[in-house]
Write a protein that binds this DNA or RNA. Sequence first.
DNA 1: TCTCGTTGTTACCGGCGAGTAACATAGCAC
DNA 2: GTGCTATGTTACTCGCCGGTAACAACGAGA
Lengths: 197, 197
Amino acid sequence: MAATKPKRIAGDERRELIALAAGRLFAANGYAGTRMEDVAAAAHVTKPMVYRHFDSKKDLYLALLARHEDDLPSFFEGVDVSEADRSADSLVRVILEVWLDYVRANAHAWAMLFRDNSGDEEIQAFRLRVSRTAREVMAAFIAQRAGSRMPPEQVEPTAELLTSGLAGLAMWWIDRPEVPKPVVVDVAARMSAPAVG
Amino acid sequence: MAATKPKRIAGDERRELIALAAGRLFAANGYAGTRMEDVAAAAHVTKPMVYRHFDSKKDLYLALLARHEDDLPSFFEGVDVSEADRSADSLVRVILEVWLDYVRANAHAWAMLFRDNSGDEEIQAFRLRVSRTAREVMAAFIAQRAGSRMPPEQVEPTAELLTSGLAGLAMWWIDRPEVPKPVVVDVAARMSAPAVG
DNA sequence: TCTCGTTGTTACCGGCGAGTAACATAGCAC
DNA sequence: GTGCTATGTTACTCGCCGGTAACAACGAGA
């Protein structure tokens, strides 16, 4: 739409443009919620061009996931490992900083790898609402218990970390019936302590 | 297939059987990965029966989500709030116990509300692999830093809680560009401390 | 026993979207 | 200029699956 005349572009370059567009769409709308025609349109091409570069929709999606997976370890390279002069706490903070930079710079990749995505807008909205409620309940609890010891602007992100972490821990436990409950309680209690201890 | 003769059952009862079967399938295979015909078969009925009780596939899915959402607060009722004689830490542990009981008893509901589910088996497998790798890396880090202070069987669940929590925190931050990075670093560092401090 | 509403089935429609065949042309090699 | 290949398009096919019409029979109540 920028150019009325379809511009001819080298294959490898076009492939990158398609991958880029597809990454955005998949991250935003999920696998089922993204149509190949949309991908093509977003890359300013038509469907057969997409299929010239990727065998199938799943192939395209998995290719993107694989690429992002390969990129992941690269963020470690940013960590300055001259930790001799660093306190333990300081090292962790450096790692977290680099990690957050990576996340910001690769939001699409992060979303594809870790964000939930049913593909349906209404369902998405419902789950967002549930998550928000859980976060609010948790935030209220944290504010009540950690109150004065935590800056207000840190309450919500702390609540998000805890609810997400506990939800993940729950799934982990569901998949491992052999793990005794006290173990999980101990873990959850210890990790919750900085927020609600 | 148990009975060769199709058994006649009261409407409300049938509706519950369909909801139950659908819950299992949706939790296991996700929204896109579940066909209405499968739901019907799992409830030992045919498709039109499902549509007699639920207007559409989405209606069925949302009805289940809504039901589970309504059930959620019920687990709080199990908490003995006579906290006067309880230490702060003990109260948190009681809450966690009750919560875990709820999770075990309602695994399908929990999975529908919080588990990611693309619907495609291969994609699912890929994401599981990425999560497992992340958990392993984190577990190694925790073992190295918290080493002697943590029982070995608690390392993996702790790693799972942290990776899930940080992934969630990252998504939260991506959606809120206005939040300054130091806030997120502070939160992540404080909450990580019990594991890697 | 006859009726009628409820429970159930078989056998279909229709559309959406993944994937493709066949054709068009830009532009480099010579 | 004259091919020849890589890049691009139009215009389809086709299967899957959500949803439905039409019909069958059970069994409670008269």
